[in-house]
Amino acid sequence: MTRIKSLLKSVTPTFVLDARAQRNFFAKPGWYATHLGAFNSFGEANEYIKKYSIPAGFKLNHDEWLKERMKLSSHDYPVLFWLYNILNSKNLTTIFDFGGSVGVSYYAFSKYFTFSSNLLWTVCELPEVVDSGNRIKEHLDGEHLFFTTDQQLMQKADIFYTSGAIHYIEEKLHELLEKYNARPEYIIVNKIPLSPASEFVTIESGGGSGYYPCKIERESSFIASMKKIGYDEQDRWKCVEHKMNVILHPELSFTSFRGFVFKKVTVAKHD
């Protein structure tokens, strides 16, 4: 049967296969992310979504996402390692968690080490997610958690942390940090899709609800942009549980997302 399917696929015109792939993609969003197309901007991707009479947007069941994230994936352990060492060896007490849902990383990591009494873990999210985070916090041990919609609070952070979120905004990370004049000591980025060669916007479907743009940066450009604003790379890893298969553009696909730790460069003072 597999051989027959392969044969049929080989003789079927590409435009027919592409049309079928698009119909399947827009039929119903699944829980795990899938991607379609390559675009020049978020606006262009949103216009493409509207062609299918589907409102562009994303709505995640954060209660279910919290349950999913309580079990660490392999790409979470480098973050756990770095946070443990930074928080225990440096006088750093404030974490700004950009796009951190209802505090999923905080709750997941708190099972593995005890946070200091003066730690402040701030999650920056959309208003409805902040409401959910505060509701869940009442029933779980979230004494160090604070939820906000104010991105400007990243100015006060010792550690800027983001996991699987930064590619859903059009601004690049260095642009976001410069916009608010934020200079944290450490920047930890996890689950970021970076291409070895190309830069583009694609449409993602995932989380069981919605279709929305996400940006794919070139890996070398991303690292160079962090260096340009004064950060040296300390570590990197592969997030092998996440890959980018781009429907209609298989040449843009890659096998894993990435994770990084950057440290602010200290400029030596001269007498």
Rank of each mutant, 00 (worst) to 15 (best):
78 P>T: 03
14 T>H: 05
157 A>I: 05
120 L>W: 00
33 A>M: 11
146 F>Y: 15
86 I>K: 15
199 E>T: 09
179 K>E: 06
123 V>I: 09
92 L>R: 14
262 F>K: 00
27 A>T: 12
86 I>D: 11
67 K>W: 04
186 Y>T: 02
186 Y>V: 01
59 K>G: 07
209 S>Q: 12
161 Y>Q: 06
132 S>E: 11
56 A>G: 12
11 V>C: 00
165 A>E: 13
222 F>Q: 05
106 Y>T: 05
133 G>M: 08
12 T>G: 13
118 N>I: 02
55 P>W: 10
86 I>N: 08
30 G>M: 15
144 H>K: 14
252 L>W: 14
193 P>D: 04
33 A>L: 07
265 V>I: 13
131 D>K: 14
203 I>T: 10
39 F>W: 10
116 S>A: 08
208 G>K: 07
52 Y>Q: 01
237 W>Q: 05
70 M>V: 08
146 F>P: 10
22 Q>G: 01
90 K>D: 00
11 V>A: 00
16 V>D: 05
51 K>S: 03
233 E>Q: 15
155 Q>F: 07
117 S>D: 15
36 L>C: 00
140 L>Q: 06
245 N>W: 00
159 I>N: 13
40 N>W: 01
210 G>V: 01
240 V>Q: 15
65 W>G: 01
29 P>D: 03
250 P>H: 09
19 A>L: 09
179 K>L: 04
101 S>T: 01
9 K>R: 10
185 E>T: 14
